[in-house]
Design a protein around this nucleic acid. Structure first.
Length: 195
DNA sequence: CGTTGGATCTTCT
DNA sequence: GAAGATCCAACGG
């Protein structure tokens, strides 16, 4: 009993420590981790880092009601609407910085994801920030929630990393376009686009 | 293959 | 009023 509780606290501390670092480092380290929402999800295969003093970041011009979750606790979710249609899910790192989760390899509750997306092809379920939010049914009501508590589950891969990480330019931005802050799992069939 | 335009909301000018 | 961390269907070559 005591042991269980102690391990739980330990896990929460390490989880918070994991996110309370440079967003680029966190973005790279998140590749291969398992992310679930209500048990739906899979393995993170593509991420992008956004810094507090990064012209491409929502937080660059300071705190607003939309981006306030970016200034919350490290390890919490920042969810925003993109192009008026899609939701995008981020993991908050140091204050004002975050990692955009761009693609997931579907693993858990595939049929639920298919139903949420209205698509059968596994490769089209979570390969893109808007797609994965639709597949995992993430919307504004998840903004600010901690990723290490239900309905979220976030687990780092156990053991040493076996596959290599791709690096590239971030997608769909017009500022700070030269930075290579996009990361992906080499060889994955579930990336949103080529590197 | 590649390109284009429409859907539709939030923020800032 | 314009632009945006997007997606998809409809084109054209």
């Amino acid at each position: 009993m005591f042991r269980r509780g102690r391990d739980l606290v330990q896990a929460l501390i390490t989880n918070r420590q994991f996110f309370a670092r440079d967003a680029c480092v966190v973005a790279r380290d998140m590749i291969g981790a398992t992310l679930l929402v209500h048990g739906v999800g899979g393995i993170v295969v593509e991420t992008e880092a956004y810094h507090a003093n990064d012209p491409a970041s929502h937080s660059f011009c300071g705190r607003t009601s939309r981006n306030s979750a970016m200034f919350g606790a490290p390890g919490s979710a920042y969810v925003y609407r993109s192009y008026g249609l899609h939701w995008c899910l981020n993991a908050v790192c140091l204050p004002g910085s975050a990692v955009l989760v761009r693609a997931i390899e579907p693993q858990s509750k595939l049929d639920l994801m298919r139903a949420n997306r209205g698509v059968d092809d596994l490769r089209l379920l979570c390969s893109g920030p808007g797609r994965l939010c639709q597949a995992l049914a993430v919307d504004a009501s998840y903004d600010g929630l901690p990723l290490d508590e239900l309905p979220f589950q976030f687990k780092l891969p156990s053991g040493a990393r076996t596959s290599s990480i791709l690096t590239g330019h971030r997608v769909g931005i017009s500022k700070a376009v030269d930075l290579e802050w996009r990361f992906g799992l080499a060889g994955s069939s579930y990336l949103s686009r080529k590197f």
